[in-house]
Design a binder for these strands. Structure first.
Lengths: 115, 115
DNA sequence: TTGGATACTTTCCTAAAAGTTAGTACCATT
DNA sequence: AATGGTACTAACTTTTAGGAAAGTATCCAA
């Protein structure tokens, strides 16, 4: 598997490519919530501990640009914006679940109990 | 899922915990190779494009500390060190495969053909 | 006219990850 | 006496992710 370039960025392998789309601290927590229902900006912010306005905005923008979520703006005041997961976004859910379960497995192996 | 602390580091969720063990640019490429056979330091270095001595050393050390690989030193000159995957390390392989396949799937969706 | 609500944007800053370059120990071979 | 091979280690710099704090636009209600 040689290197390849996409949007001016060099990737060494498919794992890097995947993690560039759904990795980082916030993308999976966001997708994980949107799999259940539509969320507004403020709802996501309340529901995801520690996330800042800036990170929420930037991660939503990237997920949208990559086609994982959809952004619907209502032209009212105060503004209302709804975020929903797309079909493409849904393909990430089983992956997240796999990683999440693996994390739980590792945690159990270390005797970490959180909930 | 609340926050938890392990080794003085705060984790927000199990995904973060998993990615802290096997994530980053180099750990999966290393484990991916060790799943087939034992490698010496120099062999890994030749086989993994772009990796530097420093990154290879530090990632091997972390994987060893976390119990994913085993390090066997031969007391000869010039030095010989062999790295092998452990049972725990093997549990990461299906995860890597899942992410890797997902990456390939996404790449195909974008019309990226690499090999 | 002040404040609240919503969904941001902008600027500045810090910490962690990763990269660059150079050097080391050891002995065997030439 | 110099060279080469192996597996590092150290010092330093760059890059990136993420965080903090403040500012913006709009309209309405008090």
């Amino acid at each position: 598997m040689p290197d390849f370039i996409y949007n001016n960025k060099v990737y060494y392998n498919p794992v890097e490519f995947a993690m560039d789309r759904i990795g980082g601290t916030w993308k999976m927590p966001i997708l994980w919530r949107l799999k259940e229902r539509v969320f507004r900006f403020g709802e996501l912010k309340k529901d995801i501990p520690h996330i800042t306005d800036k990170m929420l905005t930037s991660q939503l923008r990237q997920l949208e640009a990559d086609g994982f979520i959809h952004r619907k703006v209502y032209a009212i005041v105060p503004p209302k914006v709804e975020y929903s997961i797309t079909d493409k976004g849904r393909t990430a859910i089983p992956i997240i679940e796999t990683i999440r379960n693996y994390g739980l497995e590792l945690m159990e192996g270390e005797g970490i109990k959180s909930k």
